[in-house]
């Protein structure tokens, strides 16, 4: 190429631009191919899972491709029925019964506690906040046994109470911390304006702070939803009757009770178990990203 450029001077500039453009194209192609390849690699297990859920039990281990040769809904149909007297619908309902109070109470209690920490001065605030952060660093395992004994003495075993009551008392330090950080970034002017307008502390919280906190509260609810949906250990420890099993335990159940594992059923139900979290995430994504005080406060 340089040869041509020296020989025919007038065309040289257009020629080099063409070369540059081509180089840029190639570089972009290489980059995107690479990214696409790595992305595919990361996603492959998930894609395979979805594909395999439509395969017959024999085919699952027969090929590594994800497109089923004879697509069938058999896995879904049989998986839904389960080997217990209950359908998977029951287990989904059970999960819902845990998630709903847990998510709602988490949002309420964490907002209250975070408001207190972020906006008020009170004796012992520093120590209390430090201990809150300390519980964040505490491994969960450490508290399992004392908690179990506590809930056993309360007579809460085999109920959903141990799963959501701690959250109703702002037991999730991470969320409190997250909301406190979020609140600290919001100027106090609007709350002061509300106080001048005659709002008391509680009214200020409800009418001003909560709407401002909404994007953060939605994030909290979303995280709590997904974590609870995926929580296996909690229900495993506290729930013993099959009729109260949430989805996470029920999936495990189908592995246990079947002599020859019906993998297609398990995979089909896994796909269903993934759906709620995905759907909720995509619905909430808009609020997740939405700015907060845009326009309200300048400066």
């Amino acid at each position: 190429m340089t040869m041509i450029a020296t020989e025919t001077a007038p065309v040289a500039t257009t020629d080099t631009t063409a070369v540059d453009r081509r180089r840029a194209q190639i570089s972009a192609m290489v980059r995107y191919t690479l990214l696409f390849g790595v992305g595919l690699l990361m996603l492959y297990p998930l894609i395979w899972l979805v594909g395999a859920s439509f395969k017959t039990n024999n085919e699952i281990f027969g090929s590594i491709g994800f497109i089923p040769e004879n697509p069938t809904l058999e896995g879904y149909r049989q998986g839904w029925e389960t080997s217990t007297p209950y359908t998977f619908g029951r287990f989904f309902w059970n999960t819902f019964l845990i998630i709903l109070p847990k998510t709602i109470f988490t949002a309420i209690s964490c907002a209250l506690v975070a408001y207190g920490f972020a906006r008020f001065e009170f004796p012992g605030k520093k120590i209390l906040f430090a201990s809150l952060i300390a519980t964040l660093l505490l491994p969960n395992v450490v508290t399992r046994i004392p908690q179990y004994i506590l809930f056993r003495d309360l007579g809460w075993l085999d109920t959903y109470l141990p799963l959501w009551v701690p959250s109703a008392f702002a037991g999730d330090a991470f969320f409190v911390f997250m909301l406190v950080q979020f609140l600290r970034a919001i100027p106090r002017d609007m709350e002061e304006a509300a106080r001048v307008d005659g709002a008391n502390t509680f009214q200020t919280l409800i009418y001003i702070v909560v709407p401002l906190l909404m994007p953060a509260l939605i994030s909290v609810a979303l995280f709590q939803f997904m974590w609870t949906m995926n929580d296996f250990l909690g229900p495993l420890i506290y729930i013993s009757s099959v009729e109260k099993f949430p989805v996470s335990l029920a999936l495990k159940l189908s592995i246990d009770t079947t002599e020859a594992f019906e993998w297609n059923r398990i995979l089909a139900m896994s796909v269903l178990a993934l759906l709620p979290a995905l759907v909720v995430f995509f619905i909430a994504q808009k609020y997740f990203i939405e700015g907060i005080s845009a326009g309200g406060v300048k400066g």
Binding site: P187, D189, M190, E192, A193, A194, R195, V196, D197, G198, A199, N200, Y207, I208, P211, L212, M214, I292, S293, A294, G295, G296, V297, K298, G299
Partner: peptide
Amino acid sequence: LPPGKRGIAMVFQNYALYPH
């Protein structure tokens, strides 16, 4: 007295309008 009971109104530098 709390601000709301003092018979005052205030205009802030940052306007402090309620954004929602």
